[in-house]
Design a protein around this nucleic acid. Structure first.
Lengths: 148, 148
DNA sequence: TTGATTTGGTACGATTTCGCACTATTTAAT
DNA sequence: ATTAAATAGTGCGAAATCGTACCAAATCAA
């Protein structure tokens, strides 16, 4: 393995890490105090995909350990953004449902973030972003599979 | 702001976040217990760029709060991977220097990661990665500036 | 059917991340 | 020169992340 190849990958993952960090804090400064990117992401996911999913399904969708998802969901429960119902298909399991408050939280969050996306969009055109996504998805999928 | 544009950016940042997460844990499973990505990254940075930098310069290079860098450096000090010397140019400040143990740690880490990079390289060719980096750098730079 | 194994979820503890407040030193202003 | 403001670093506390261990329910095996 030549060090030039290695450095290419290091640079890549380094940029990825910093973008993840910066975009996260950029979002979180817009959210009400005490709410984080995972909180928003889960609510957003429940709207975009569907609610009624199990905590484990959510943990897999976000590639986090299930204990992390438990913790995130407990925060959403405290804010009454979601509610839990038993899973009729499996007595060990639960299902996660959005409340009206949760939907409102998402609306408000998006409204307060939109100006930032707008500004970003003027500097990095949407088309450029769309071009990147397939390659990133491919890499993400590989890493996910290689996890074993 | 139309929701299609918004979703494009959301998808992008979501992929970024998951790749950051997966690549981080992939690396950390190869490191000796108790050592993390930031530990490795800082040592690697000190070798690639130069040692003798101040903690604050490192914090800026990695876009983390200075308290976070203090914590990371304290871990490196415990392992005797770096040592601190006073900054001759500024009495408030320190400089961070690699030890032989620290260099060895980096060597060993790279050796144990290389097989993974090799495998990754066979699935995602180096050229594809290199094509992505400039766009990512552009986005990272924008986010950094937009932070205010 | 019964017992063993797997699976969904959580409690707990260790570590990381990071904001706030504080000290010590430097820089700027008058 | 003196004082005010800015800067480098750290201690501390709160929250996020995640591994281990555990319970309860489901699945599998004989």
């Amino acid at each position: 393995m030549d060090s030039e190849t290695r450095n290419a990958f290091f640079r890549f993952f380094n940029e990825i890490g910093i973008i993840a960090q910066l975009s996260r804090t950029a979002l979180e400064t817009r959210l009400p105090k005490g709410l984080t990117l995972p909180h928003f992401s889960v609510v957003n996911h429940l709207i975009r995909v569907k609610d009624g999913q199990t905590p484990l399904a959510l943990a897999k969708a976000f590639q986090v350990p299930k204990t992390t998802m438990t913790h995130t969901l407990s925060g959403l429960l405290e804010h009454h953004f979601v509610e839990m119902r038993p899973n009729p298909k499996d007595g060990r399991s639960k299902t996660v449902w959005l409340t009206q408050t949760g939907r409102q939280f998402r609306e408000d969050a998006i409204r307060s973030i939109d100006p930032d996306i707008d500004a970003l969009c003027r500097n990095i055109p949407k088309e450029k972003i769309e071009e990147l996504v397939p390659a990133l998805t491919e890499i993400r999928t590989y890493l996910d599979i290689a996890r074993d």
